[in-house]
Amino acid sequence: MSTNDTTAPAVESLRDLAIEEAALDLLAARVAAAKKDVRARTQLALDAAAKKDGVERIAALLPNGEQVATISLRKGETGPVVTDEEALARWIRQTFPDQEWTETRIVRTVKPWKLAELVAQMEAIGAAKIPHPTSGEVLEPPGVVWKPTRSRTHALTWRKGGKDATAEAWRTGALARQFAAITAGGEEQ
């Protein structure tokens, strides 16, 4: 092309744009479903490896052996969860009648600031219990249980250049086995 060439670049056709959008929509849906599935399978495998051998991280390696990322286990958390705020509010009012920690509406509720304080005390103890402020007796308030508050999960951390190397491996077909299900036929996947 010469420097004097004034030919305008080719304009994309509406048909080309429409099929590109449709194809990308399909690909995005299949990738999202595949990612959800592989995350669940990875979590099960990591949990099993952690229980059996204490494994908490695994390298993501390309077929050529290049490490592109690390997948690390993140531990879940447990804590107090208020399951019946009305029962808890009645108990607090009966147990601490001199305090203004509750307010009466049609339903008795615990003031949000006090509820947060009580939950923090339970977290510090490590159980759905609170100490009485004057007697020190450890009390078990109704309407509160100790259960998981955040699921155990894992995180993927890319190495420098890992995304580019993975994209190249995908482009050249080195990851064809990993992506076969995404491009397989079938209307609903």
Rank of each mutant, 00 (worst) to 15 (best):
W91T: 02
V31W: 04
N4E: 14
E188K: 11
A22W: 08
A184L: 06
P133S: 02
D84E: 02
G54S: 03
W91R: 01
T95L: 08
G161T: 02
A45T: 07
L115G: 01
K51D: 15
T172S: 15
Q99E: 12
P112Q: 08
E86D: 10
E21N: 12
W170H: 15
T183M: 11
L156I: 10
A128L: 00
T6E: 12
S2M: 04
R93L: 09
E86C: 06
L27I: 12
A120Q: 09
I182C: 03
T153F: 05
Q43C: 04
V68H: 00
E100K: 14
V55R: 08
A127F: 03
T6R: 15
S13D: 04
K129G: 00
R150D: 01
R108W: 01
V81S: 09
I58A: 14
P131N: 03
K147F: 01
D37E: 14
L88Y: 02
M122C: 06
V145K: 09
E20W: 08
A120K: 04
A28K: 09
A33H: 10
I130P: 06
G126Y: 00
I92F: 04
K111A: 07
R90I: 11
P142V: 09
H132Y: 05
T166E: 05
V31A: 07
G185E: 15
E100P: 06
N4G: 11
E20F: 14
E123N: 11
V110D: 00
P97W: 07
R152S: 03
V68L: 10
P80W: 00
A22Q: 06
T104F: 12
P142A: 03
G173W: 09
F96W: 04
A165K: 03
G186A: 05
T157E: 11
T95A: 08
N4K: 14
R93H: 10
K147N: 04
W113D: 00
G65L: 00
A32L: 13
A49G: 10
D25M: 13
A169H: 00
V82C: 07
R90P: 01
